[in-house]
Amino acid sequence: MVVFDKPHALTDVPMHYCPGCTHGIVHRLVAEVIDELSIEGKTIGIAPVGCSVMAYNYFNCDMIEAAHGRAPAVATGVKRADPENHIVFTYQGDGDLASIGMAETVHAAARNENITIIFINNAIYGMTGGQMAPTSLPGQVTQTSPYGRDPKLCGYPIRVCEMLSELEGPEYLERVTVNNVKNVKNAKKAIKKAFQNQIDGKGFSLVEVISACPTNWGMTPQAALKWIDDKMIPYYPLGVYKDRSAKEAE
């Protein structure tokens, strides 16, 4: 009996991500959820700009490549064009969603667009070589903050889930991570719920995944996963930040 195999919604193309990059794990979780909900034929994914720019090579469903940060706007268009027959998700990094695409993200959330957003937060710009991102931690050394991020000069990191939870619009906001087996299973539950919300027509669902970037953090893959526990989670606490349906049911 096969206990575990590559999900059908992932293609056989070898991923270009660095060794130990957790993008691969999140790709697989999304693909597993697409398989489990049997929605591969009607799912349209929106790829971002960033490391996951070539996500369209890895998913078996239809994919669109959006301009930098504009994935929620493209997703809005796709979803509104045919809301009954399409399941639309975007897969975005922190440089894409929390920096250049902040306006699109906030307004999509405020409008409660019925889309699913998978937000990868690795606290750095990966593809361009490790520059400081809006989510880089205070004191974090990056290419553009060689002495550590100084909040007096560069401001403070943005906590996207907390910020969006203040809006009336969004249906579901949760922050998860994938640095060990237990957290991977929790992350899958959250991603599944985000897709199920869309199928049920509940509205905007965003899952923030705290992710590792061993190459640009300058660590081994193992040390990077530990760094998530030690440094990232204290600043970005895991948990559900908004779940409107569950709250109304109380």
Binding site: V2, V3, F4, P7, Y17, T22, H23, G24, I25, V181
Partner: peptide, 19 residues
């Protein structure tokens, strides 16, 4: 024992687990 923890953590999905 086929717990599939290795496959769960593999970013490149290279491990198939049968039991």
């Amino acid at each position: 024992v086929g717990c599939a923890f290795c496959a769960t953590m593999c970013p490149d999905c290279i491990i198939k687990v049968e039991r």
